[in-house]
């Protein structure tokens, strides 16, 4: 852990400690993961940044709430919400039936879709996949799509991490991978992704991303109202354009 990281945690801890003593109209504590660029990440100065963070700040402005942002590890993010460490999670969380059993979700604030990624020089065509080797991360929506929709036609390879799938795409073992579109877009812009590109159109799989709050919390209605406002007045589009040249709503 370097100094910047330490400073970041100090800042976060200080902010959390200070929160109970600052009285304003409404106090809302919001958790995000801080490890899912470009949606939420910690930058060099130790500050939380990203699409989720900007959306959170815009929502707070509309709700006229005094917001505190905290970074929380993904594994403990739902338990922490239930233990009242914070009041909402804005961390690119997919709305799933399993999660809906334990938390309430706001209206979706963006949609995730799938897409094929292959080397630029390859003539891979998503329309003609028969007999190809196609990879995805295990136990993800992309992995399920691959098995359900293409399992009979292609050789399916499932990886423990997305990075391992990218490694095998680079090594030439895979003809293409199926991935969440938005993180893949980010990867294509990185140094490692220069030789690769999207192939074909994005695949809509009805994966909606929402804000999680405790069951029955009225914060949900407030969030939904604020979300409608930022969508209507162009705030959302401005944030969207900062990260992606296409609409992700």
């Amino acid at each position: 852990m370097n100094l910047k990281h330490t400073l970041a945690s100090v800042a976060i801890v200080a902010a959390t400690l200070a929160a109970p003593f600052t009285y304003a109209a409404d106090k809302v504590r919001i958790a995000t993961e801080g490890a899912y660029a470009p949606f939420n990440f910690i930058d060099e100065s130790g500050e939380l940044k990203g699409f989720d963070v900007d959306i959170a700040k815009a929502l707070c402005e509309k709700m006229e709430a005094d917001c505190t942002l905290v970074a929380q590890d993904w594994d403990g993010i739902i338990p922490g919400l239930m233990a009242r460490k914070y009041d909402a999670i804005i961390a690119s969380m997919s709305i799933t039936p399993e999660r809906s059993r334990v938390v309430d979700f706001s209206d979706p604030y963006y949609s995730n879709s799938l897409i094929f990624v292959a080397p630029k020089k390859s003539k891979f065509n998503p329309e003609k996949v028969s007999g190809k080797s196609i990879g995805a991360q295990r136990a993800t929506i992309a992995g399920q799509y691959l098995e359900d929709k293409l399992g009979s036609k292609v050789s399916v390879k499932l990886y423990d991490t997305q990075d391992n799938a990218y490694l095998d795409l680079a090594s030439g073992r895979l003809d293409a991978i199926v991935s969440d579109q938005l993180p893949a877009y980010d990867w294509l812009r990185s140094d490692a992704g220069q030789a690769f590109e999207f192939k074909g159109e994005k695949i809509d799989i009805d994966d909606k991303i929402g804000i999680a709050v405790r069951k029955g919390d009225k914060l949900r209605q407030k969030m939904n109202k604020a979300l409608k406002e930022i969508l209507a007045d162009g705030t959302y589009d401005r944030i969207n354009a900062k990260y992606f040249p296409f609409s992700i709503y």
Binding site: D163, N164, Y166, L167, A170, A192
Partner: peptide
């Protein structure tokens, strides 16, 4: 190590 490999592509 896998994280480092992900960044550097030097498995």
């Amino acid at each position: 190590t896998a994280v480092a490999v992900g960044y550097t592509k030097e498995p």
